[in-house]
């Protein structure tokens, strides 16, 4: 399942997509949990009883601000969460 967490508002579309099929058997030992400086990722048991990552609820409403520090304008050339997720399950829409 591709789970899109986030929102669209007047300033743009801010979604983090997690491909749960790639996430279930994480080959990166859940590196996203520690890679995100804001610790937005959390492991939950989804409706199909699989252990997958999701974005914590409060962060889903503030992604544009929460992720701003990791974007190129803040000096990063690649996003820490995407880099840490070697199976390639995480994508940003912006």
């Amino acid at each position: 399942m591709i789970a899109n967490y986030g929102y669209k508002d007047g300033s743009g579309e801010y979604y983090i997509s997690i491909d749960t099929d790639k996430c279930i058997d994480c080959a990166a030992e859940r590196a996203c949990l520690t890679a995100c400086p804001k610790q937005m990722f959390e492991i939950i048991e989804d409706d199909y009883d699989d252990q997958v990552a999701w974005i914590k609820k409060p962060n889903c409403r503030t992604l544009a601000y929460d992720c701003a520090d990791c974007k190129p304008s803040s000096g990063y050339t690649s996003l820490p969460c995407i880099t840490a997720c070697t199976p390639g399950a995480i994508k940003h829409s912006w």
Binding site: M1, I2, A3, N4, G6, Y7, C60
Partner: peptide, 12 residues
């Protein structure tokens, strides 16, 4: 009937 992709708007 298994959801394979979803998107919502969590903000407003």
């Amino acid at each position: 009937g298994k959801a394979i992709d979803f998107a919502g708007n969590e903000k407003c």
